[in-house]
Amino acid sequence: MTPTRKRRLIIISLVLAAVAVAAGLTVLALQQNMTYLYSPSEVEAGEAPTGARFRLGGVVLEHSIKRADDSLQVDFIVTDRFHQMPVKYTGILPDLFREGQSIVASGSVEDGRFVATEVLAKHDETYMPKEVADAIAKAKDTHAAEPGGSH
């Protein structure tokens, strides 16, 4: 083998090995860390995975925030204006969290209640995350399609 060929062989085998390892790990890691976003209507319709983690997007329902007296537990309701989902969270909420604000919470459903481990409210008070806006629009469409579903 000429030195050039040998060098090329080394480079190619290194590249192939790296690609194989990287591809394998990537697929594995992606599968484990992908979370989907659902609106309360979709959760209601049973589209969200049971027991697995997902993200819930919607608006914090007015007058629904209730705090515990002795811990940091907060209970509130997330709505897409058609269906509602009670949410439990223990911890400190972001600055922009308030009634009527659109939020994204990650967690899973336990006993009919969404137990959130993280609550995100976006930086701009007027800004609604695109995915939440989409989810609400989608819920609106579904609702309009249902017989007698005028709102």
Binding site: A29, N33, M34, T35, Y36
Partner: peptide
């Protein structure tokens, strides 16, 4: 495929491995 988000553990795991 749905509204997906990729969590920080993916990045952390991949990055540390590499």
């Amino acid at each position: 495929l749905g509204r997906i988000s990729v969590g920080p553990p993916y990045f952390a795991f991949m990055f540390i491995m590499l």
